[in-house]
Design a protein around this nucleic acid. Sequence first.
RNA 1: CGGGGUGUGGCGCAGUUGGUAGCGCGCGACGUUUGGGACGUCGAUGCCGCAGGUUCGAAUCCUGUCACUCCGACCA
Length: 480
Amino acid sequence: MAKDKKLVEQITAMDEDFAKWYTDICKKADLIDYSSVKGCMIIRPYGYAIWENIQKILDARFKELGHENIYMPLFIPESLLQREKDHVAGFAPEVAWVTHGGSERLTERMCVRPTSETLFCEHYANIINSYRDLPKLYNQWCNVVRWEKTTRPFLRSREFLWQEGHTMHATAEEARAETVQMLEVYASFHEQELAIPVVKGCKTPSDKFAGAEDTYAIEALMHDGKSLQAATSHYFGDGFARAFDITYTDRENKLVHPFQTSWGCTTRMIGGIIMTHGDDRGLVLPPAVAPIQVIIVPIAQHKEGVLEHATALRDRLAAAGIRVKMDDSDQSPGWKFAEYEMKGVPLRIELGPRDIEQGQCVAVTRHNGEKSFVSLEGIADTAKELLEAVRIGMYEKALANRERRTYVCHTLDEVTAALEANGDGFIKGMWCGEEACEDETKAKTGVGSRCVPLVQENLGEVCMCCGKPAKKMVLWAKAY
RNA sequence: CGGGGUGUGGCGCAGUUGGUAGCGCGCGACGUUUGGGACGUCGAUGCCGCAGGUUCGAAUCCUGUCACUCCGACCA
């Protein structure tokens, strides 16, 4: 156990100082580095590879559902941004402005996109003329800029990477169906690929996206009991279409407005992965997005035949489509174990002379540290089975944390008591629908409304804040 | 935007009553090692955040400033 002390010295213990633990992992797992611009981080190859894997999976799914990728400009003229009243009001405080081109002052300043609704609308106004042009299902992968005051790697940076889908539909029903469909895509991606349990819900009116009629979101509970909004999907109705004068001729030869959606998820998800699955040894990555799914550590690699066997093993796994690395650097095995644990590699295979003699290897799963001897026969299939077991194990572990931290409350006193007794977490409680009660709940207990879950439970008849008749069951939590 | 904290080699830190900078890790070379962060020898790396001031002399004292960071309020 003396060895463990050395590990603890490397990163802060998560239950001691979660914030420090988080930034330690971001740095020590080589995900990011800070740059000279506050809030603008360098996403290093290992971190970027996670994002690329996320992109690959989601992009394929978007395309299966008929979406096409497009690229919009980085700059938005001020006049364009101002076309939709609520939208500007929502984003104005945090946009970055470009005022000069070279040494010349621009006649109209331009903002660096904080989101691209306005650009899409301008474009849609030009290309949508007939019902035959609908639906339009566009998505773009890009960076956006929001000039945040306080920043944290992945969770809140001034520039971040994301995907924003923007779609136009002939009917409100179709647009609503799209909104919910994309929420489902995000939810299943989190639960299946990222092994992160989520709650699907609708934002309360005070918490909606600037300009949206309805905002749907998925909320995930992090290890420390705070909630992370992991992705959002908005239904816009025809508000933007009216503001941007987007019209088309319908089947009855009438000029009408189309209905719109937008949906997005960001590099913040990487923060979600860290805070959901990580432990005191470092990062724990879900196999689906891990840059390295299997790390092979040769033991006594200088000995006759070890490297040859390890290389052959690597090639077999790679041929089976597994992202695998064999580390034959001259670090000690112990160093390699610690290193790849820090980096969250889901499965480690140790291969030494004794193993080779017996036609086996040692397999260790990162999320629970379980060690087993595995036959080299059919190792590719075994590795895949183990990775699948890891995915399920990680999900169950995360779900158990959420269950343990989910409290049903009927009064604000119960909320305070629950948080004090068990720590931060999800509060399930009834709400009357008044914004004043959201504010008061937050002021008195610290938890805010995260969403109105799509799956409602009837926990009582009255609002836990004001005691008046309740309309909805709301999920409350402290949030990132 | 309010409240705290920290700035010294790549990282983590020490530096006493002011006297011109040190430790551990990491890095490079060579050798020995290798089943949980190996060891030895040699070596390289500092505008002590920045700008003023006090002083014969400042990492150290004073003033200002910037950056990072944490906790709140706001937001993906």
